[in-house]
C-alpha cells in the first residue's frame, strides 16, 4: 500500500478512537471512567498531531493534558467525594442537548466542507516540524502572546490558591 493509504488508515483508526472515547466521556455513569476515557481521547488527538507533523505539540499534549490536567481532574473528583461507581450524573435535558450538539455538528461540518473543498494536506514532506523551529517561532514572531500566556498562567496560579485556601 502507498504511504497515502497508510495515512488514511491511521487517520480512521485514531478518529474512531477519539470519537468513541469522547462519546464515552460524556455518557459513562462512572466518574473515574469518564476521566480515564478522556485520556483515550487526548492520546488519540496526540496521535493526530504526530500524523500532522506536529511532534512537539503531541508531546506537550501528552505531558500537560494526560500528565497534569487529567490528574487534576481525578483529584477534583476525589475531593468533591463524587460517588465512585455508577450513579446518575445527567440532568433531564439529554434529548435537547443531543439535538443541540447534532445541530452544531451539521452546521459546522456543512460550512467547513463547503469552504475547504478540494484543499489537500500535502504529506509529501519527509521531515516533521523540528522542536528547534517551534522554539524559534515562539521566541521571535510570537514572543508577545507568549509573555501574555505566562502572565495568565501566573494569575491563574495565584487565583487558584486564593480561591481554594481555607481561612
Amino acid at each position: 500500500m502507498s504511504a497515502e493509504t497508510w495515512q488514511q488508515v491511521v487517520f480512521w483508526i485514531f478518529a474512531l478512537l477519539i470519537t468513541g472515547a469522547g462519546v464515552l466521556v460524556v455518557t459513562t455513569r462512572n466518574v473515574i471512567h469518564a476521566a480515564l476515557w478522556l485520556v483515550g481521547a487526548l492520546m488519540g488527538a496526540a496521535a493526530m498531531y504526530v500524523l500532522l507533523f506536529a511532534e512537539f505539540v503531541a508531546w506537550v499534549q501528552v505531558l500537560v493534558y494526560v500528565g497534569a490536567i487529567v490528574v487534576l481532574m481525578l483529584f477534583g473528583l476525589m475531593l468533591t467525594r463524587a460517588p465512585i461507581g455508577s450513579a446518575e450524573f445527567d440532568n433531564n435535558q439529554r434529548p435537547l442537548a443531543a439535538l443541540c450538539a447534532a445541530a452544531v455538528f451539521v452546521v459546522t461540518s456543512v460550512i467547513l466542507i463547503g469552504a475547504f473543498e478540494g484543499q489537500e494536506i500535502n504529506f509529501a514532506r519527509t521531515a516533521g516540524t523540528s522542536t528547534e523551529s517551534i522554539g524559534t517561532a515562539i521566541f521571535s514572531s510570537y514572543v508577545w502572546p507568549f509573555e501574555v500566556v505566562s502572565i495568565l498562567l501566573l494569575a491563574a496560579l495565584v487565583g487558584a490558591v486564593v480561591i481554594a485556601r481555607r481561612d
Binding site: 497515502e4 495515512q7 488514511q8 487517520f11 478518529a15 477519539i18 470519537t19 469522547g22 462519546v23 466521556v25 460524556v26 481521547a41 493526530m48 500532522l52 445527567d90 440532568n91 435535558q93 439529554r94 435537547l96 442537548a97 443531543a98 443541540c100 450538539a101 447534532a102 452544531v104 455538528f105 459546522t108 461540518s109 467547513l112 466542507i113 475547504f116 473543498e117 478540494g118 484543499q119 489537500e120 494536506i121 504529506f123
Partner: peptide
C-alpha cells in the same frame, strides 16, 4: 489527504463536548 477529514473530526469532537456540557 483532504483537510476536511480533520475539520469534520474536530467538529464532531466539539459537538460531543457541547452535549457533555449541556447534559
Amino acid at each position: 489527504m483532504p483537510v476536511s477529514f480533520f475539520l469534520v473530526l474536530s467538529a464532531l469532537l466539539f459537538s460531543i463536548g457541547i452535549y457533555g456540557v449541556l447534559a
